[in-house]
């Protein structure tokens, strides 16, 4: 699993005005810079180059440079369908996470002392449990002989089992479960910044609980919901293990497509091109949306 929060920008130290040039900070950063730089930038550049090579069944990877792989992805409706599906799944997952996670964070926020930290642990704890194990749980719940179908048919609500496995619905449910903690974290952090007296002030002015939430709470935690949505969307779009297990081989998304190109078809250049598109899309969404949210809510953050 990836980032808990991407907005960990630490403000520059206020004390100690700038002294004359000192090598100390650079020396302290050098080891990390060398290691992370080498293991991050070089491989990414090599992947970018790889995506420009071409691949033949008998020739393997050749060293020519062209945009053939990208052209293929853009022109082939097979790829369109997969990217569109990835987008749809990510969007619906984000929506589901926001609809469940934001109210839940608010409910947690209003809880009393022991329950508050206990249920926060219940909500955030799954983040530490292996994604594979969590997705496996959903496979057991959603399968045609799974717990949900057995219960529903056993109760006579359904006459025949509903197929959730290998469907977009199944993938969205499981992904929403895997990524929900990120939404809760983000909204929770926004709620923590809230002045508890503001709510009481609104009530004293005659606002109903519903009005308080709609007019006072929601506008203030909106930045939290939006930045949570950015994280969830980005992680959903690049999720691999969950769509691979629930979606199976047939219901492909961008990440599982790249995996198959790399490890099954062995068309590394095409797989690399898909990966590059995934990366670029991710960065555009994270950086672009963050900018938008920050500009829109500049006053709220200050």
């Amino acid at each position: 699993m990836s980032a808990a929060t991407t907005d960990t920008a630490i403000a520059a130290p206020k004390s100690a005005p700038r002294e004359r040039f000192s090598a100390t900070p650079y020396l302290l950063n050098l080891p990390a810079l060398l290691v992370i730089g080498t293991l991050l930038l070089v491989p990414l550049i090599m992947t970018l180059i790889l995506s420009l090579h071409s691949f033949g069944m008998y020739t393997g990877v050749t060293d020519d440079i062209s945009f053939k792989n990208y052209a293929e992805i853009i022109q082939d409706s097979y790829f369109h369908e997969i990217f569109l599906r990835t987008f749809r799944i990510s969007l619906l997952t984000t929506l589901l996470c926001a609809l469940i996670g934001a109210p839940e964070a608010y409910i947690l926020h209003r809880m009393r002392a022991p329950w508050r930290s206990i249920f926060l642990l219940v909500m955030l704890g799954p983040l530490l449990i292996s994604v594979v194990a969590r997705t496996l749980g959903w496979a057991m719940l959603l399968g045609s002989t799974g717990v949900i179908n057995q219960t529903l048919t056993g109760l006579g609500i359904l006459s025949a089992p509903v197929q959730f496995m290998y469907t977009e619905t199944g993938v969205i449910i499981a992904l929403a479960h895997v990524l929900m903690p990120f939404m809760v974290i983000s909204v929770w952090a926004a709620l923590q910044r809230l002045d508890p007296q503001v709510e009481n002030a609104a009530i004293s002015l005659g606002a109903s609980p519903f009005t308080v939430v709609r007019r006072v709470i929601l506008p203030q935690i909106m930045p939290g919901i939006l930045s949570g949505s950015i994280i969830v969307f980005a992680l959903a779009a690049s999720a691999f293990a969950t769509p691979a297990i629930i979606g199976g081989r047939r219901l492909k998304v961008a990440a599982t497509l790249a995996y198959d190109e790399f490890l099954s078809t062995l068309n590394w250049p095409l797989g690399a091109a898909i990966a590059v598109l995934l990366l670029v899309g991710n960065i555009i969404i994270i950086v672009g949306c963050n900018r938008l949210v920050e500009r829109r809510y500049a006053q709220v953050f200050q």
């Binding site: 991407t6 100390t24 900070p25 990390a32 960065i283």
Partner: peptide, 28 residues
């Protein structure tokens, strides 16, 4: 704790693995 040119850039670089899909990292 120190103020130096390139500080923000270094921080972004060090935090960038959070933005990169693990699939892309694996392939790269």
């Amino acid at each position: 704790r120190l103020k130096f040119a390139g500080r923000g850039l270094l921080l972004s670089l060090f935090q960038s693995p959070l933005m990169i899909p693990h699939l892309v990292l694996g392939i790269a």
